[in-house]
Each structure stands twice: as C-alpha cells, then as structure tokens.
C-alpha cells in the first residue's frame, strides 16, 4: 500500500483550506471525466488588477477548494493549497507533475496521476483565459 502514506491519509481525513473564499479573485472548476471527481478552486491574488491580464508579477496569496474526490486527489488538493502560497506562474509551472509526485511521498501509481493532478490542473487555469 505504498501510495497510502500517513501524510496522504492525514490530508485526506483533515483536508486543509477546504471551503470557499468570500472575496475570491478567481474560481476554477476542474473534473476527471473518467471517475466523476470534481473540484472547485478559489484563489486570492496579488500583483494583479481585475480586468487585466495576469502577468509574471501575479502571485497566489490564498487558496480554498471544495469537491468530491478520492484520497489521492483530496490529499493532493489539500497539500497544494499550502504549497502554492506565494507562487507565480513560473513557480507553478516549474512545480509540475514531478512536484506533485514528490509532495505525495515520491510514488504515485501511473493509473492515479489524473487523481493526483486534478487540483494542479485547475490551478494552471489561473493563467489561462486571462483577463476574466
């Protein structure tokens, strides 16, 4: 049961930053079509003026999330919500799938990568659809 390390079980049972933000700058939805998992992510940003494109100075200040998911996707969202504070676009892209695997204890079954990256894929949307 290499994938279910204590840290994963901990974040799964006590997810951090679970819920919603009253004053979110952006909300994003992401889902896994094959398993029905869904996540809504809300973030507060700095270095960004609403209505204008997010740029290299835009930094994630706070993240809240909610949704239904398995232990892997839930733990990954919970851990990411702490990790990504202070990250800009470049930091987030550099973090990548390798960062997720490392964060989850260094081993993720290939069949579960979609679970592991659900929240991360949602976060990348901050820098897409720019200006919304």
């Amino acid at each position: 049961m290499t994938d279910y390390k204590d840290i994963i079980i901990d974040h799964y049972k006590n997810p951090r930053n679970f819920g919603s933000l009253d004053n979110a700058d952006i909300s994003m939805d992401e889902s896994n079509a094959s398993c029905g998992d869904m996540i809504q992510i809300q973030v507060k940003l700095s270095g960004w003026i609403p209505g204008q494109a997010r740029n290299d100075k835009t930094v994630i200040e706070e993240m809240r999330w909610r949704g239904v998911g398995c232990a892997i996707s839930t733990a990954a969202a919970s851990m990411l919500s702490e990790k990504i504070v202070g990250m800009n676009r470049e930091d987030l892209e550099e973090f990548g799938e390798a960062g997720i695997v490392e964060m989850l204890g260094g081993e993720v079954n290939a069949g579960r990568m979609k679970c592991a990256t659900l929240a991360y894929r949602g976060l990348l949307k901050i820098f897409e659809n720019n200006g919304n």
């Binding site: 049961m1 279910y4 398993c35 998992d37 998911g69 398995c70 892997i72 079954n109 069949g111 579960r112």
Partner: peptide
C-alpha cells in the same frame, strides 16, 4: 471510500 481508492487497495 472512493472507488478509485478501493480499487487500488484491492489491486495491492
């Protein structure tokens, strides 16, 4: 238990 977790544990 989420079905993906159940299936992975059964796989083990």
């Amino acid at each position: 238990v989420h079905p993906h977790d159940a299936a992975q544990i059964l796989d083990s």
